[in-house]
Amino acid sequence: MNVIIGLLSGIAASMGFGGGFVLIIYLTVFTDTNQIAAQGVNLLFFLPVALVSLIIHQKNRLINWKTLLRLLPGGILGILLGAFIAAHIDVGFLQKLFGGLLIFVGCRELFHKNTDSGGEKKERKTDTARQ
């Protein structure tokens, strides 16, 4: 079972599908690992798996370093802020909000028209800005 879960999580993680969902769900639902421990396992799992993926992605020239570097400062600040907020408020309500956002974006992605027109991208830009 570990082989299947490890493989599936690795495939999902390297493709940017959030491999964490596979591993965390398995650990919390099918073994009696608690949520925090499962998140820790997922983090340790993700680091080497992501490193291998990134080497291949880099070879395939799929990583946009310029965008990445511009996202990073905000990202680090956001993590600190997120961890601080999580320690002080009810995260359950926030999770519901996040779930709502995922339903919205998920439906858009799932049922998108098969075109990559500029108009569609612009529309999506304003949506994410609003959130």
Binding site: I5, L7, G10, A12, S14, A37, G40, I56
Partner: peptide, 24 residues
């Protein structure tokens, strides 16, 4: 962090990573 539990998955995860990256 539970290193022991993580190691049960990491080797297969790395194989999965190669498959996923090629698929992407």
């Amino acid at each position: 962090l539970d290193f022991g539990l993580s190691w049960q998955y990491i080797p297969y995860g790395i194989i999965g990573a190669v498959i996923g990256a090629v698929l992407l």
